[in-house]
Design a protein around this nucleic acid. Structure first.
Ligand SMILES: [Mn+2]
Length: 557
DNA sequence: ACCATTCACCCATCT
DNA sequence: CGGAAGGCAG
DNA sequence: AGATGGGTGAATCTGCCTTCC
């Protein structure tokens, strides 16, 4: 299976991309569409080119309401005719009703003012009102639910015969997008940005029919949860959304992960509004790892210290991620102290070496860069790398594993990582390839492999590689100074939990090429302190005898 | 990497 | 008027 | 003074045009 992006010198390049996409999705997932959606898809297929192009333009743009004057394109001769055709096929309508907010986004401030003065002449409408204020005033006149005829409003506001339309296939295309990308954060612009080379992706043999979407219910449930998450952001009272949350667990693991995250977010929101009982309800249902931490915290805030103490102890035993254990243990220790219990030190981190750096003057650029410049010496260069270095080294060495054509891992051409990159089974499903990569490391052949990958794969999107920061010189220096056994240690810890362990690396690395050694430095400004994920890496470095320290920086006023 | 994510920065509270 | 912000396009 | 928890804000292709304050 191959998916090609259209050349941008074709004036209808976007149409071609849409057709590619629709063909792909309808071929594979026709049965997942409702009868109405199937009818819409058939109607789209039967459109003339200009009508299809106008539809496509609207689909790619924000919202579902458009003014005719804003749908003029050089390659489309007669927009009005195209809109008529789309109306006749039931893909757009001119009968849309709008509320004041929708109207405001469609009209300029002057037009909105004119609309207000014509429609409510008895009220004062000073021109000095800002657009948001104006919209707010209008809101008091027009009910919140869309009720004002769009075409009429445009007529009143502009004094012209310009029409406005509502796109009726937005929901359909959300489903198309989800089926194609497997997520809702990517969109059609992927086609043109990769065609232009702004982004490039590795070519992998794609899984033809991924098992993720096996029924319409999965699709619907996902979209439902996505919309709930959006509403949750806005909601100033979470309790109104509470009954709509997905309280029963689906069998589908992909859906359950989405559900767990949603419930976690709902719990956070409830916490912020001091709805602790509700927060606990959400955390109890969520399998999102951090939910256990928040559950303990809410217990501390809203329940008795005894309850909190016992509960934290239980959760501590169950937590698997180091960062969650660390956070729960803090709560546990606190409640133990308050109960005057003996406080068993379950989780102690090695204390990192700390030193002081006095800059001659306040940093002009970013603090980390100033420090790198101050610390570095001609024979001991110091580079600001943060996560980029070790993630980059990881991405280079394990490239064959990351982009292995494992079943269901790749299903469209715009992926910077396999779909299961951060799942528990990532390593297991690629065990032999990963072993091979470690073997290279043990045999000292990793350097050549990584340099080759750096050259061959330059610029191809990879979640672990930030190409702009990973120069051949940096790679060379890193390979020269960091012994393979230490790289292995670091990579093995990363592989334990790629999601958590890909961040928290120290800011700076200083190389000593003459002695083939190096040291890592975490820079901290006057009001900063190491974060939990940073402390966990520092702890590993300390235990393994890797030179890593925290540098507290100060400067004269 | 499921409008996040990761970091620094700022402020508050508890001891 | 200068200039920030957001939408849109390729 | 130090250890905590909590919240914020920046940056994500690049470049143009419109809108708004
Ligand atoms: Mn730092």
């Amino acid at each position: 299976m191959k998916i090609e992006t259209a050349k941008v010198d074709d004036p209808f390049y976007y149409l071609q991309n849409l057709q590619t996409l629709l063909g792909f999705v309808t071929d594979r997932y026709w049965a997942l569409f409702s009868p109405e959606e199937q009818q819409q898809l058939t109607a789209i297929d039967s459109l003339t080119q200009p009508a299809q192009a106008v539809l496509c333009r609207m689909v790619m743009r924000k919202g579902e309401l458009f003014r005719e004057s804003k749908l003029q394109y050089p390659e489309i001769a007669d927009t009005a005719a195209a809109l008529n055709e789309l109306g006749a096929k039931g893909l757009v309508t001119t009968c849309a009703k709008v509320n004041s907010e929708q109207l405001a986004s469609l009209l300029t401030k002057a037009e909105l003012l004119s609309f207000a003065r014509h429609t409510y002449p008895e009220l004062p409408w000073p021109a000095s009102l800002s657009k948001p204020k104006l919209t707010e005033q209008l809101q008091r006149q027009i009910p919140a639910e869309p009720s004002f005829p769009l075409v009429e409003a445009l007529h009143v506001a502009t004094g012209t015969k310009e029409i406005g339309v509502q796109l009726l296939v937005d929901a359909l295309f959300v489903r198309v997008r989800l089926l194609f990308f497997g997520n809702l954060y990517q969109d059609w612009s992927e086609f043109v940005t990769t065609e232009l080379g702004h982004r490039q992706y590795e070519r992998v043999d794609l899984t033809d029919t991924p098992a993720t979407f096996d029924s319409r219910e999965v699709l619907e449930a996902y979209i439902e949860m996505h919309q709930l998450a959006e509403q949750l952001e806005q909601a100033d009272d979470v309790l109104t959304l509470w009954p709509q949350l997905p309280w029963q667990a689906p069998k589908h693991t992909w859906l359950d992960r989405r559900r767990s995250k949603l419930l976690f977010q709902a719990g956070r929101q409830a916490e912020r509004q001091q709805q602790y009982a509700h927060a606990i309800e959400a955390y109890r249902e969520s399998r999102y790892p951090e939910a256990a931490v928040r559950w303990c915290r809410v217990s501390e805030l809203s329940e008795s210290q005894e309850q909190c103490y016992q509960f934290a102890e239980e959760q501590l035993a169950q937590a698997s991620a180091a960062i969650d254990k660390l956070r729960i243990s803090r709560i546990y220790q606190r409640s133990a102290r308050k109960l005057k219990q003996a406080t068993p030190l379950l989780f102690t981190l090695a204390r990192p070496n700390t030193w002081q750096l006095d800059l001659p003057q306040a940093p002009v650029e970013q603090l980390e860069r100033s420090c790198a410049a101050a610390i570095g010496e001609p024979d001991a260069p110091c580079v600001y790398v943060e996560n980029l270095l070790f993630n980059g080294l990881f991405g280079l060495l394990f490239w064959p594993a990351i982009f292995a054509p494992v079943r269901d891992a790749f299903f469209h051409p715009f992926q910077a990582a396999p779909a299961d990159m951060y799942s528990r089974s990532f390593s297991r499903k690629r065990q032999s390839i990963i072993d091979d990569c470690f073997a290279l490391l043990e045999q000292g052949q990793h350097g050549d492999a990584m340099h080759a990958t750096l050259k061959d794969k330059q610029g191809l999107a990879n979640h672990f590689i930030y190409w702009e920061g990973l120069s051949p010189e940096l790679l060379d220096m890193a390979l020269r100074c960091i012994p393979a056994p230490q790289l292995e240690l670091i990579f093995r810890r990363m592989l334990q939990d790629l999601r958590q362990h890909r961040s928290g690396f120290p800011d700076l690395i200083q190389f000593y090429p003459a002695s083939q050694t190096y040291r890592l430095i975490e820079i901290k400004g006057p009001n900063d302190r190491p974060q939990d994920n940073q402390r966990l890496w520092l702890d590993l470095f300390a235990r393994e005898g890797i030179d890593a320290s925290v540098c507290n920086v100060s400067w004269p006023e």
